[in-house]
Design a protein around this nucleic acid. Structure first.
Lengths: 224, 224
DNA sequence: CCAGGCACGCGTACGTGTACGCAACATGTG
DNA sequence: CACATGTTGCGTACACGTACGCGTGCCTGG
């Protein structure tokens, strides 16, 4: 009665081999799905189908969809976060790192979701943080100051990305009142991001100079 | 095959009265649900059940769940956004307005979701924006400058709230590496929010002074 | 008065994430 | 070899949001 039933093309056996399925394989499939088509098209069921396995089987290797998404996003981030500028030009390097993250988060809603839903402490994210702390440190900030600066920059970047993404996602919805729409929209332009970042980095620069001044007396103090 | 079918306990009539159901009634029920129990417990199905109506009936008055949520959040925001400080103390007033919004967004995940998912142009949100623009204007900023300052403060507030909420939601998950957790957590403390806001307001103050200086020649110019 | 249109409430169905627990397999132990 | 024990894939089932379209009742123009 329900028409075509010829779907699963498995002749005799319905169960999959034993060795099939591993976490890395699932992550690979999910990454591929996100890369082409985006977050929406990555469903547990479609993933399972593509691997040739039952949906519930994935849950042996993955706590839930978010857990899987974390790892996918980490893999994607790894390809895009690194600045091209030299680390000696610390302002340019930091600005580029921040902008790379911003662009990534805006382009890939899945990534933004991950960054908003919990602290990201994956391998690549930590590596990135260490790199930024290193650059900030070499720019003259002490540990405390570097952490504080990193926190400010990071918060700003993610917050702005969330704002920008929400704006760009709702193009052509309501006409709004007058040119208010345009005004609000301009808040979330990449240009505005850069300008805000300049303010932030100015503040960080000042902190770096002060820090350097204070430290010049005891430059080798126990900095932990 | 699908076992027990004796569920709906309606004796004779299955259909609800004609006059029942109105958008405001649905919003009221939804607001009540969010107030006690939070966003998670507010499901379309439970709402319909409480009103005594079929789930799909709600969709005559509500485009989708997000549409409903928008209005609920607006109602909740209305109760909490207003600062206690006098508008003459513009820094205190603005800081309090920002902090009120931050607290609201952190406390109520539904609200944060709304603010992240699209521009909020509801009645109360616009009223709040006008009020802030007014205060900034009276503090000496021109229209352009006030809008820019508002944008910066707003972006910062929402971004920070998103950051803070994600942090506080994941307490006691992973131990992380060393005291890094504590470090990261401190980024998202209310104290840190206040400190960042001070930087921002310092910048705004400078802009206000410059603007005032420029405007002192033509203080009664078309300020609209 | 009544015929037509239309607003309304709803039944059915689909695709989603995932809790729960069983069955098939591998491996270790007597 | 027989059996216990752990590992892995999966079947069933549930609650969710919501697309689609049907029947029922109201109201209004002729």
């Amino acid at each position: 009665m329900p028409a075509a039933r010829a779907k699963t093309e498995v002749p005799a056996n319905s169960r999959a081999q034993w060795g099939t399925l591993s976490r890395s394989q699932i992550v690979a499939a999910a990454t591929k799905a996100v890369r082409g088509g985006g977050y929406e098209t990555m469903t547990i069921r479609s993933l399972a189908a593509q691997i040739g396995v039952s949906p519930m089987s994935l849950y042996r290797y993955v706590r839930d969809k978010d857990d899987l998404l974390d790892e996918v996003v980490d893999a994607l981030l790894d390809e895009v976060w690194r600045p091209a500028a030299s680390e000696d030009e610390w302002r340019a390097w930091i600005a580029e790192a921040a902008d790379n993250l911003r662009r990534f988060l805006v382009r890939e809603p899945a990534a933004l979701r991950v960054y908003l839903v919990h602290p990201v402490v994956s391998k690549v994210a930590l590596e990135r943080m260490e790199a930024m702390l290193g650059v900030l440190g070499r720019a003259g900030l002490g540990n405390e100051a570097a952490l504080s600066a990193y926190g400010a920059i990071h918060t700003y970047t993610i917050g702005f990305a969330a704002f920008e993404a929400s704006r760009s996602r709702s193009v052509g919805s309501e006409p709004l009142a007058g040119d208010l729409a345009g005004r609000l929209a301009s808040f979330s332009s990449p240009r505005q991001f850069g300008e805000g970042l300049v303010y932030l980095l100015d503040g960080v620069s000042q902190a770096a100079e002060k820090s350097a001044g204070r430290l010049s007396k005891a430059s080798n103090a126990g900095q932990r």
